[in-house]
Amino acid sequence: EEERTFTNEEEARKAKKEAEKRGLRVTVTKDGTTWRVRIG
């Protein structure tokens, strides 16, 4: 499991799409101005 943080919503969405392409489970949460993308 890996967690990545982004300040840019577009980049967070891109990371989510890429992980889904690899067949991984992805959770995206917004924490104030930060987007957290949890993969795995």
Rank of each mutant, 00 (worst) to 15 (best):
E1N: 09
E1W: 15
E1G: 12
E1M: 14
E1P: 11
E1I: 15
E1D: 12
E2D: 08
E2S: 11
E2I: 14
E2P: 07
E3Q: 06
E3F: 09
R4G: 05
R4S: 07
R4F: 15
R4Y: 15
R4V: 10
T5P: 02
T5K: 05
T5W: 14
T5E: 08
F6K: 00
F6W: 02
T7S: 10
T7W: 09
T7I: 07
T7V: 08
N8S: 13
N8A: 04
N8W: 03
N8H: 06
N8V: 06
N8D: 09
E9W: 15
E9N: 03
E9F: 13
E9P: 06
E9D: 03
E9S: 05
E9H: 06
E9G: 06
E9V: 07
E10K: 10
E10T: 09
E10Y: 12
E10R: 11
E11W: 04
E11I: 02
E11A: 09
E11R: 03
E11D: 13
A12Q: 01
A12H: 01
A12E: 00
A12V: 08
R13Y: 15
R13S: 10
R13D: 11
R13P: 00
K14R: 12
K14S: 09
K14F: 09
K14M: 12
K14E: 13
K14A: 14
K14H: 11
K14D: 10
K14N: 12
A15V: 08
A15N: 03
A15P: 00
A15H: 08
A15G: 02
A15F: 15
K16I: 15
K16M: 15
K16Y: 12
K17G: 08
K17P: 01
E18P: 00
E18K: 04
E18S: 05
E18V: 05
A19R: 01
A19V: 03
A19L: 14
A19H: 05
A19S: 04
A19W: 10
A19E: 03
A19M: 12
E20V: 06
E20R: 04
E20L: 07
E20P: 01
E20H: 04
E20N: 04
E20F: 04
K21N: 12
K21G: 12
R22H: 09
R22P: 02
R22A: 11
G23D: 02
G23C: 08
G23A: 02
G23P: 00
G23Q: 02
L24E: 04
L24N: 04
L24Y: 10
L24K: 05
L24V: 05
L24F: 12
L24P: 00
L24A: 04
L24G: 02
L24S: 03
R25L: 11
R25E: 08
V26Q: 00
V26D: 00
V26G: 03
V26R: 00
T27G: 02
T27M: 07
T27F: 08
T27R: 06
V28S: 01
V28I: 15
V28T: 03
T29P: 00
T29R: 07
T29M: 09
T29Y: 13
T29Q: 07
T29L: 09
K30F: 15
K30M: 08
K30D: 05
K30Y: 15
D31P: 00
D31T: 09
D31Y: 07
D31Q: 08
G32V: 03
G32K: 04
T33Y: 10
T33E: 15
T33F: 11
T33A: 12
T33K: 10
T33M: 11
T34I: 14
T34L: 15
T34S: 08
W35E: 01
R36I: 15
R36C: 12
R36V: 15
R36D: 02
R36L: 13
V37E: 02
V37C: 06
V37G: 00
V37H: 01
V37F: 03
R38Y: 12
R38S: 12
R38L: 14
R38M: 11
R38N: 10
R38V: 15
R38F: 13
R38E: 09
R38A: 10
I39V: 08
I39F: 08
I39E: 03
I39D: 01
G40S: 14
G40T: 14
